[in-house]
Design a protein around this nucleic acid. Structure first.
Length: 589
RNA sequence: CGGGGCGUGGCGCAGCCUGGUAGCGCGCCUGCUUUGGGAGCAGGAGGCCGUGGGUUCGAAUCCCACCGCCCCGACCA
């Protein structure tokens, strides 16, 4: 490619609306162009990166035995009613009406469609196991698109779905995808961690997320450095903290007037006590019944944990209007003493000597309440989100919380969709059994964003070799016909013939201008051909990730550059293999 | 959906408070000079001032409504 005939609109200044590094740099490097909130054009350079990620994904999915197909984005709404997700997906589902009055949806994910395909075409255990995948545009009516291409209303996703005859087969299918994901992200050169994840409304019982640590990430990951435990914050378990050593004789609790003070913040400020010594009673509807969770005031309730603690299928915050009737106490002044609904106490409360709680009476809070003495603690569970410093559930050491960007997610679905939609097969005894499913997603655009988030410096992007729009940029310092231009063109041709992506910066610009653009875009390898160097029989070669250039002789130039590229590719392969060996040594997830 | 901010050539901004010929830098076009880290000089093109309504002799500027974009929160298979 000759730069002069490319469309690469680099920007010297930072666009005002961009905040996240990946957003700023992809715009400045001329890779994307905004159409509207959460809708971006991939310009030629950006598209090349996207396609490279896509190619790596496709290769590894094929290698893992998954079969590629392509399903429609346009889907009848009935399918969503059939699975029950028309309700649970809610406003996130893009709905439209087409001619003839048909109600359709633009697919945000494809469990329904793939289940429909499989229920029609797979009927026997002999056809199992099978994993199907596609790389396709998804649509979600995100309430708040953000950070450039990080969260958009339309995005490219690789989604795979496994269908198995039994749980063991599902385990094998899951492991195959899990391993393929490692290979994909290793080849993309991304720094990532795998964390245990909440499977969420999609259901199921096992789930892992692949996260790239970066400040722009919207997820929070709890991690223990001592033992390596890592989980999404919403999934992370909290280890046991030492129980409070209570003085033998504590004074009885006191009722305090707290007129109008309803929130933890207000009450604690009013009573001049630390929020860490307060408690909050949260009321939920567990499968339609009112239940309560008692947490330390400054802690964050985790609805999934609370749902499980109550053994409920569905948990939702109770409607405030319904609370007084159910509990006999006014909202804002709820407390654990003599509460009339089932209550589970969070572990952390056990570590509190005394606690400030609501008095179950308007404008009254109680101080000096002793857990276990003043109210019954018959059920204790982990009900909250882990915080930095909380004990690791495995080893008890303090965990840390870091931001992460989710690029991939694998989970075991079970029979949620196959049962709802009647996707069954006949086993070797002729018995009809619902298929067991797993699903596996990769945000292709997010690989691009994550690579930039994880790979940039003050001068611009530093692309991993396998994702770069072009691996090599050849810069002739003068573009007038002559030896410099001829050498540069020859070099570019030879590298291209050897199978590398090359762009020749044939623009009639000063050297500094071209260097700035090359650094901004982040081509991994830069080759400079100048008159001065040529006279000395030398050309310059510089890796974007290194600070110092190397010089090679003109005579062996092509071979030297090819050797450099081969070495870089070998190193990357070796790193992938080393990671693989480490995984094998560590055993299954 | 709640809170905050912003809409003025392709990009970054000033002008608005106090109404009266729309301005600067970058980029773009032409020419000359320059050529190893975003060159200099000269000339030039390009703007329904987000949209609609109102006030006024007169609106980028004041008022009202709407639309759009960004950030925080809620939400996020």
């Amino acid at each position: 490619m000759r730069w002069s005939s490319a469309l690469i609109p680099t920007l010297k200044e930072t666009p005002a609306d961009a905040v996240a590094p990946s957003h700023v740099l992809l715009l400045r490097a001329g890779m994307i162009h905004q159409l509207g909130a959460g809708a971006y054009t991939y310009l030629p350079l950006g598209l090349r990166v996207l396609k490279k990620a896509e190619a790596i994904i496709r290769q590894e999915m094929d290698a893992a035995g998954a079969l590629e197909l392509l399903m429609p984005a346009l889907q009848p709404i009935e399918l969503w009613r059939e699975s029950g997700r028309f309700e649970t997906f809610g406003d996130l589902l893009m709905k439209l009406r087409i001619s003839g009055g048909h109600h359709m949806a633009l697919g945000p994910t494809h469990e329904e469609v793939v289940t429909d395909v499989v229920r029609d075409l797979v009927n026997s255990y002999k056809q199992l196991p099978i994993t199907l995948y596609q790389i396709q545009t998804k649509f979600r009516d995100e309430p708040r698109p953000r950070f450039g291409i990080l969260r958009t209303r339309e995005f490219l996703m690789k989604d795979a779905y496994s269908f198995d005859a039994d749980v063991d087969q599902l385990g094998a299918s899951y492991d195959a995808m899990y391993e393929a994901y490692h290979r994909i992200f290793d080849r993309c050169g991304l720094p990532y961690v795998v964390v245990e994840a909440e499977s969420g409304p999609i259901g199921g019982d096992a789930s892992h997320e692949f996260m790239v640590p970066c400040d722009t990430g919207e997820d929070r990951v709890a991690r223990c450095d001592s033992c390596g435990y890592a989980a999404n914050q919403e999934k992370a378990e909290v280890g046991d903290a030492p129980a409070a050593a209570r003085a033998a004789e504590l004074p009885p609790y006191k009722a305090e007037r707290t007129p109008g003070q309803k929130t933890i913040k207000d009450v604690c400020a009013f009573l001049k006590v630390d929020e860490k010594t307060s408690g909050k009673l949260m009321v939920y509807l567990a499968d339609g019944k009112h239940v309560a969770a008692l947490l330390r005031g400054d802690h964050e309730a985790n609805e999934a944990k609370i749902r499980r603690a109550f053994g409920a299928e569905v948990l939702a915050p109770a409607d405030p209007d319904s609370i007084p009737k159910a509990t006999g106490a006014p909202v804002g002044f709820l407390g654990p003493i003599d509460i009339k609904i089932p209550m589970i106490v969070d572990k952390a409360v056990l570590a509190m000597e005394t606690i400030v709680v609501g008095g179950n009476e308007v404008d009254v809070h109680l101080t000096g309440v002793v857990p276990g003495r003043d109210f019954k603690i018959d059920r204790v569970a982990d009900l909250r989100n882990a915080d930095a410093g909380d004990p690791c559930p495995r080893c008890g050491q303090a965990m840390e919380i870091k931001a992460g960007l989710e690029i991939g997610h694998v989970f075991k679905l079970g029979t949620k969709y196959s049962k709802a939609m009647g996707a069954t097969f006949l086993d070797d005894k002729g018995v009809e059994i619902p298929l067991i499913m797993g699903c596996y997603g990769i945000g292709v655009n997010r690989i691009v964003a994550a690579a930039v988030e994880a790979g940039h410096d003050e001068n611009g992007i530093v692309w991993p070799l396998n994702l770069a729009p072009y691996q090599v940029v050849v810069i002739p310092l003068t573009v007038k016909p002559g030896p410099v231009m001829e050498t540069a063109e020859g070099l570019a041709d030879r590298l291209r013939e050897a199978g590398h992506d090359v762009i020749l910066d044939d623009r009639d610009q000063r050297p500094g201008f071209k260097f700035k653009d090359a650094d901004l875009i982040g081509f991994p390898l830069r080759i400079v051909v100048g008159e001065r160097g040529l006279k000395e029989g030398k050309i310059e070669l510089k890796w974007r990730s290194e600070s110092e250039p190397k010089t090679v002789s003109t005579a062996t130039g092509v071979e030297a550059v090819l050797a450099e590229l081969r070495t870089a590719e070998r190193k990357l392969r070796e790193a992938c293999q080393a990671n693989r060996a480490r995984r094998e040594a560590a055993g299954k997830p």
